[in-house]
Design a protein around this nucleic acid. Sequence first.
RNA 1: GGGCGAUUAGCUCAGUUGGUUAGAGCACCUGCCCUACAAGCAGGGGGUCGUAGGUUCGAGUCCUACAUCGCCCACCA
Length: 803
Amino acid sequence: MLDKKYDFKEKEIKWMNYWNDEKIYEFKKDQREVYSIDTPPPTVNGKIHIGHIFSYSQAEMIARYKRLKGFNVFYPFGFDDNGLPSERLVEKEQGKKAHEIGREEFSKLCYDTTTKYESDFKKLFKRAGFSANIDNAYKTVSPSSTKISQISFIELANKGACYHKESPALWCNECLTSIAQAELETKTIQTMFNYINYETTDGETFTIATTRPELIPAIVCVFVNPEDPVHNHLIGKTAHIPVIDVEVPILADEKVAIDKGTGVVMCCTFGDQTDIEWWKKYNLPLKNIFTNDGKIVDSVKNYGGLTIKEARAKIIEDFKEAGYLVKQEELEHEVQVHERCGKEVEYTVMNQWFIDIMNQKQDFIDIGNQIKWYPDHMHIRYNEWVENIMWDWCISRQRYFGVPFPVWYCKKCGKVKLARIEDLPVNPLVDQPTTPCECGCNEFIPEKDIMDTWQTSSITPLINMRYGEKDNYEDILKPMSLRCNAHDIIRTWDFYSIVKSFYNFGAKPWENVMISGFVMANKGEKISKSKSNSKMEPFELLDEYGADVVRYWAGSGKLGTDIVFNDETFLRGKKLINKIWNVSKFIEMHLADYEDKEFNDFEYIDKWVIAKFNEMESGFIKYLDNYEMGLALNHLEKFFWNFCDNYIEIVKHRLYRPEEFGDIPRYSGQKTVYMILYKLLQDFSIFFPFITEEIYQELYHDQKSIHLTNIKEFDYDFNNELINGDKLNMIISQVRGEKSNNNMSVKTPVKSLKLSLSDELNDAVNKAIKDFKATLFLEDLTINKTDKDFVIDEIILDLDATN
RNA sequence: GGGCGAUUAGCUCAGUUGGUUAGAGCACCUGCCCUACAAGCAGGGGGUCGUAGGUUCGAGUCCUACAUCGCCCACCA
């Protein structure tokens, strides 16, 4: 017997353990078609927020749907624990910077800390009813991931797709590492636009405008546009920069915007992207005046040793004092900052490893075109990113905790020495190459840098297929069926994965990409950036509402669309769960003597509701096939409430009173509720794995778990009853309305009802006459003919009846 | 400045390929404890579908322009 009230606290733990013990979701190769899901390994930075539940649940629902459809679902899980996010977490917890702790100890701390936080994530996802392989989660920093990551790297290097070069790169002087374009964010800052006078050596004064006067000591030339009538006569002259007392040439370039600032630009190596372009194009000298930790190098007179900000203030002061500062304007503009720390990025020139992006853009677009994107417009977003990218992918990081490059440099000739595949994984700081350099030298300098964390997380398809191992899944995971993630990492995870798949295999990594939205705390306020709000803490929500209700919220809404957190949706979910429980209790009550057997003598209303179910489920499946789990749920929910409020209200009389209606009509009702509840539970199990399991085990139990059953269409085709059954229900509804308008109970007897009906509807009413009369508490029915569907001519209520 | 999305009831949102009187939940109002459920049931009020044009027999839905909001990117001279 189902309990009077559903206690999610008790039941959810029970079924969580049951699924675990019985290995309900375990993957084993068999003859079934595989559906594989490449789910994002969460970044382990300590913060678990409701956004995790939201987008991960949506993919989880797809896993459950595909399982119900008969696929052998391969649903691995992992953690992205290497790299800067983990390092920053540890630095914060220790209150010390990595270099103060020391490389080895720091790495160990990172490993231990991430493992600790991962266990919280595992708990969370299990409690939320995730059917992924959580216990065997991979770590992107583990030896096996390291090995695969290094194999991938070596394959790229051997193909010439990956190169080592001294080149300008984006630099974060907070995190002390180079970074990639994808790791940038834009931030609006208030700054000062400074107008400063320079002079030509023949005595003409001209003005430049800059927001970054501290870069003046790095000036290498001045540019004007050759089309600029006011300034083009300066071209070819030499500019004298006061205060710092240097002379630089004045050159022409059409990229200078005449109407921006003063129309005269100084080029410093490097202040921005354009400076780098000009530096390459005109072969300009290099004046690297910043130290890696954001100070002016000592060799700069007067300013050496100052921080960038201090230098900015002092230079302005000096130019002002000398009379060269013409004016200052307040300016609000966007600057690029490092997404991990929010600090403005600089540029630096050093030896780095890069993956070729710029030469293969079209291939990346082509692969994007071979993948189906849900929703479709996210594909455009991907294309936009690829088209606008400006740098090769810098994968070197001057950090500690991550995958080491399997690389040494020959001490004698300097040549790059790659590790042999069979020797992987290697750590060049500890291990030595197993063969000498081509030049014969046996001494090597190890590569100290580690790889960008995306270099490894972009190969989750390879990690999932255990690439390079003997016992692998390459045959079933090339390509994987589905990649799912939120829209913030299209440009990183999705893009880089496509890059890697292109270089490693020359093929797409997945068939489909499903992009979920973001949870917003308020309109325009990302949850990850809002202050912690206990109302939205995942564990507290799970405690208060239970996993099924939390999943209801997560599964609502439209794919790819951001949602604002609101607790009305939780309330709605709570009501739905409660209703599922209650109607199941009702049905169980009437199945005490039920035996399932072949039966074809269904009552009219039973045929109608079976047809309604079929109609609903085909729409339901259509939504799910398009990864629209929110719309699918909505669709199912709508049917379900109608089923309870309309159909159950009709059939209950027949179920309660066989002496009045007969045993066979009662059996028809029993069979109908038995079959429909089974299918409803299956459909709902995608969203509510716990309560559906509880009811399923109590009432059906034909498999070890509802999550091992398959959905099949009803064999019955009762579509003929659809339209007139709906109309019959409209009549019932209107008569009930009449009672309600008279402030009477729905049980108020109807003394007399006069209807005019079409022939078809007349036929339907006759077939369902007993149900019809019982539902309305109708005593006397008169039917006339009409060419309309129906007209209610007269309703006489028994007004003396006590409510 | 470029790209994408959104704009529908007081609030949160549905509205499948254009087709009768535009839907749901919450909130509000009126009733109803009827042997599954008051976390419920039966009803009700409430919308010129962002603005202006256009295509069409017919537009919330298609086209054009504009406005507002959000996201991504570019813009550090």
